[in-house]
């Protein structure tokens, strides 16, 4: 199914912002907020995982049902998971498209990656465990 994805700040993301490698931060930023009707349509339950794919890339996220956003739209806290599917093109403004991204969403059993996993996928090296 096709959705419009936006990213932004959330309280949980903000409170873990000094601890980006914590489980809490990972949970807060890998959660995708989605309308209950869309959850039904996808044939999953709130809390199930999905593959979210944009023109740029793909990432596994955990769903969280909410009536706060309209059907057809999904929302994610800003962070490395959102960035995995965000492009660097800025339309000459310096600002990438962090909002209004068109994405495909499909159910998956794949695990949610850690922040270190994501960083290593683009050539980084994790520090510590």
């Amino acid at each position: 199914m096709t959705f419009i994805l936006s990213s932004g700040r959330t309280i949980p993301q903000g409170s873990f912002v000094e601890h980006k490698l914590s489980k809490g931060y990972q949970r807060a930023t890998s959660m995708i907020y989605i309308h209950p009707l869309d959850i039904m349509e996808l044939g999953i339950e709130s809390g199930d995982r999905v593959h979210v794919t944009s023109d740029i890339g793909s990432v596994v996220l955990t769903t969280e049902a909410t009536n706060d956003i309209p059907s057809g739209c999904v929302y994610i806290a800003l962070g490395p998971y959102a960035n995995a599917i965000t492009g660097g093109y800025t339309h000459g403004t310096g600002m990438p498209d962090y909002k209004d991204i068109s994405v495909e969403i499909e159910p998956t059993d794949d695990p949610v990656q850690t922040v270190w996993d994501l960083m290593e996928m683009i050539g980084g090296v994790r520090y510590g465990k």
Binding site: I56, G88, M119
Partner: peptide, 8 residues
């Protein structure tokens, strides 16, 4: 690292 698009 946490806030930039992947390619950058």
């Amino acid at each position: 690292g946490a806030h930039f698009p992947k390619s950058t």
